[in-house]
Design a protein around this nucleic acid. Structure first.
Length: 869
DNA sequence: TTGAATGAAAT
DNA sequence: ATTTCATTCAA
């Protein structure tokens, strides 16, 4: 059927160009930009940012993971390729937000169909609301542009924008997107000054991604550090590094600068403080030195890990959760001290290598292992996992398969290893970046000598990689500038390292998880940081408890997260991350907020995050969540996801229907869809379809009004339908009644929407397909027309509907799902709906849902808001 | 990998 | 004016 049609779209040009081959584009996230932002800026934003941050990492991680095998490297390597994805437009946002709803209603409907419906809804959507989405989109775009100054939608030429090599990141960061409710403001800001340097990638982003969950930490750290950086800023090399590996370099520096062990404590404190209060100065000497160091949360994490390994971490870690910032800090400090001591004891003796961070000597490792609280290990694992899950699989193939296969390497070892690996990876990354600095202790031992590094006993693989990398690094070492030249290498190395390590870790983590918990969900966790949070709370899967100290809950998987989470929490507690806290406070429920509010307030961060989440592990999450169900268990991910999105108003289908009717939108209705549904209805629609059919029917009527010519056919169809099912007929009638006024004025042309474009190509196709057998294209068209015709209606209705609170109800997912009936009342008479439902049920053979719906419908007062009024 | 929708941007 | 591509996910 489509074959012919298709030809066109897929098209030609597009194909070749590479259209969809999914580029490796990293998805841009507001967070990225925010990342750059100073936390200090806006509290609100901060909150959001926090959330975002969390989420971001995941996202980022995920992406890389996704592509991982191929992509990861690509990302790093191909800065060029990686193009940031273009920001979604209002419609896409809308789709993203509502697709699930549509699907709920019409389970059978595939995405295409859903898209059509969404298009209809969109068409019908009140201008106000549309405006919201538009604004969002705009902001999003603005932010995006800021982040990626030179970004071109069409890669066509080349992606000039990014360059990998050396551009200074700093600029872009500035503000990024502040979220302002008002759309307009952003526009001005848009591109702003930033140097164009920021390549699309936002390497900054990239790094974090790599980092995984850590990214957030990094952000925080960076944020704090940022100040410093600026001063030193100019390092040519840095920027480069930053661009590339960004975060790493900084870390690296730190690493290099001081012995990690020793430094760790200090750094940690400093970072923490800085992060919190922005204390700056004192600590982080290293950073000052040469580079800016963004320290990163990552670094901290590493430190923590080390410490923990040392044995002390437990303490440290635990605090975070509870804690208030101060306590935490103090503890940290204490820990640091302790660490130092131990470190000295344990580590120092052996070698200065990089000291703790990197490769703890085997002995140490063992020690650490013992001491290591699951948390740490878990953390590491978690972090990596996130990013890697998918990757892991791939990567595993390469190097780590064994782990997977085994699945159970010693957990302890694995964990430890993972930790180390992580650290190492980080260090390496840093080193690379920092390569310039002579400091690198590691360097002290030439590549060959590095042995210190690669401590991992258990996992030679990692070590090997690391070593190799190190060597590479060494080679490269040092030269940030070189980076440009050797960027690729760097990237590769880094990526490889990180990945590998991650992989290993991931494997480990997975193993652990599996061991502890069979569920695969882990991966999901990775998906969204935010989710993680919630999960942590909510989920209590016992898990290993590794994180006991850490946070409240967390099962094994969580443990990892928890670790991170601990940091976050700490930060939050301190006030660093307001938003986070807020979220936590809200819990899942936050969703409710009025659409508007939410929209304004949260929109930015939250919304973004969620989506990504979804995208990342769309399959798992979504399905699981699908909706209602998810609320129960799954919920968290979804919840968060929705929450964010929720900030945008989500409308119930009913609303749309109403609006559609009410509103004059021209919308086109998808004739095809309508037909299908109608047909279905007539036939014996599937349960899910009922609604759809109903809607469609309504629409048809509308359309009919609009187009007389079409009307005829449409009418006929409708008639037929009616005949088929009296109930339907009634509904139709009802509708007609309701919207009698149809101002016929309309225009024939109307077809605005979707079909316009596609009409050429697709339209036909649709028709054919849609036909599902029954429909013929012509009819559909007619139908559409008819619908359109009818579309016009008095605005008031719309308002009413809106006012009624379709939104309010909707916001919460639960409400949405459960509620359809509730929603219904608005537009059409309930009775009609009920009838329809009844019919459907009959056809189906009754489904619980259907019945329930009917009941509800019937019960609900019949409002005939429609028209008139 | 395609397609359905809309829209912004680029060509 | 036309083409890309952003999201989503079943075919």
């Amino acid at each position: 059927m489509k074959g012919g049609g298709r030809g066109k779209e897929p098209p030609a040009a597009g194909e070749v160009t590479g259209k969809r081959p999914k580029r490796k584009c990293l998805q841009w996230h507001p967070l990225l930009s925010k990342k750059t932002l100073d936390f200090s800026e806006e509290e609100e934003e901060d909150d959001e940012e926090e959330l975002e941050k969390q989420s971001v990492p995941c996202v980022q991680d995920q992406e890389p993971q996704m592509h991982f095998g191929s992509t990861t490297e690509e990302v790093e390597e191909d800065s060029n390729e990686q193009r940031a994805r273009r920001p979604m437009n209002a419609f896409l946002l809308f789709c993203k937000r509502h697709r699930s709803l549509v699907r709920q209603e019409h389970p059978r409907l595939d995405n295409r169909g859903a898209t059509k419906i969404l298009a209809d809804w969109w068409a019908v959507l009140d201008p106000k609301e549309k405006q919201k989405y538009t604004d969002m989109a705009k902001e999003y775009k603005d932010a995006f542009m800021k982040a990626n100054p030179g970004y071109k939608w069409c890669p066509t030429t080349s992606k000039p924008v990014k360059n990998p090599s050396c551009q200074p990141l700093s600029n872009p960061r500035k503000k990024v997107w502040s979220y302002s409710s008002n759309s307009s403001k952003d526009s001005t800001a848009k591109k702003v000054p930033k140097t164009d340097s920021m390549p699309q990638l936002n390497f900054a982003m990239a790094d974090p991604t790599k980092m995984g969950g850590l990214s957030m930490l990094l952000l925080a750290g960076e944020h704090a550090l940022t100040n410093r950086e600026i001063p030193s800023s100019t390092k040519p090399s840095l920027p480069d590094t930053a661009s590339e590996g960004n975060s790493f370099p900084e870390d690296k520096e730190e690493m290099l600068s001081g012995t990690i062990l020793n430094r760790v404590p200090d750094i940690t404190e400093s970072r923490v403080k800085s992060g919190l209060s922005l204390l700056p100065e004192s600590s982080v000497p290293a950073a000052h030195e040469g580079k800016p160091c963004r320290q990163s949360a990552l670094f901290q994490l590493a430190e923590m890990c080390l410490a923990s390994e040392a044995g002390k971490m437990d303490t440290v870690i635990s605090p975070p959760e509870d804690s208030s910032s101060t306590a935490f800090l103090q503890q940290t400090a204490d820990l640091a001290e302790i660490k130092e001591e131990k470190a000295n004891t344990d580590y120092s003796p052996p070698s200065p290598h990089t000291s703790a961070l990197l490769p703890p000597p085997p002995s140490i490792t063992s020690t650490s292992t013992d001491a290591i609280p699951p948390q740490l290990s878990s953390q590491n694992a978690c972090v990596k996992k996130k990013s890697k899950k998918k990757e892991v699989a791939k990567s595993i193939d390469n190097s780590e398969l064994p782990c997977l296969t085994k699945k159970k390497c010693d957990e302890a070892e694995s964990q430890v290893d993972s930790v180390f690996s992580t650290i190492e990876a980080v260090a390496k990354g840093a080193w690379k970046d920092s390569g310039e600095k002579p400091k690198k202790k590691i360097q002290s031992s030439p590549s060959g000598g590095i042995s210190g590094w690669p401590k991992k006993k258990s996992k030679p693989k990692v070590n090997t990689f690391v070593k190799d990398k190190e060597e590479d690094l060494d080679d490269d070492s040092g030269q940030c500038e070189q980076v440009s030249s050797s960027e690729v290498e760097m990237k590769e190395d880094v990526s490889a390292i990180s990945h590998k390590t991650e992989t290993d870790e991931a494997c480990i983590g997975i193993t652990d998880l599996q061991g502890t918990i069979p569920e695969p969900h882990c991966s999901p966790c990775a998906h969204s940081p935010t989710a993680v949070k919630e999960e942590d709370r909510g989920r209590e899967r016992q898990g290993e408890m590794s994180c006991e100290s850490n946070t409240e809950n967390r099962g094994s998987r969580k443990s990892e997260r928890s670790c991170k989470g601990a940091l976050y929490k700490t930060l939050v507690s301190e006030g660093m991350l307001t938003s986070l806290r807020a979220n936590i406070d809200r819990g899942k429920r936050g969703a409710f907020r009025a659409s508007d509010h939410a929209h304004d307030a949260n929109w930015g961060d939250d919304s973004w995050i969620l989506p990504q989440m979804g995208s990342n592990h769309p399959k798992k999450l979504k399905k699981s969540k699908s909706k209602d169900e998810s609320s129960q268990g799954l919920g968290k991910l979804e919840e968060e996801f929705e929450k964010k999105f929720n900030s945008l108003p989500q409308y119930s289908p009913m609303t749309f229907d109403k609006k559609g009717t009410a509103v004059s939108k021209k919308k086109k209705i998808d004739s095809s869809t309508v037909h299908e549904e109608t047909c279905k209805v007539a036939k014996g629609p599937s349960p899910s379809q009922k609604k759809t059919s109903f809607h469609k029917i309504v629409r048809k009527h509308k359309h009919k009004k609009e187009k007389p010519g079409a009307m005829d056919t449409a009418v006929v169809q409708s008639e037929s339908m009616m005949v088929d099912s009296p109930s339907k007929a009634k509904s139709c009638a009802t509708i007609a009644i309701m919207c009698p006024d149809v101002q016929g004025t309309t225009n024939m042309e109307m077809l605005v929407g979707s079909q316009k474009r596609k009409a050429r190509k697709t339209k036909i196709t649709h028709l054919v397909r849609t036909a599902d057998g029954s429909v013929s294209p012509a009819e559909e068209d007619k139908t559409r027309d008819l619908n359109q015709e009818q579309d016009k209606k008095p605005l008031p209705q719309q308002n009413l509907c809106n006012e009624k609170g379709c939104f309010s109800n909707l916001t919460s997912e639960e409400a949405e799902r459960s509620t359809i009936p509730q929603e219904l009342p608005a537009f059409f008479s309930l009775a009609a709906l009920a009838e329809v439902a009844a019919m459907e049920n009959v056809h189906r053979g009754q489904r619980g849902l259907a019945e329930s719906q009917k009941k509800e419908l019937t019960q609900t007062p019949v409002l005939i808001s429609c028209a008139d009024q």
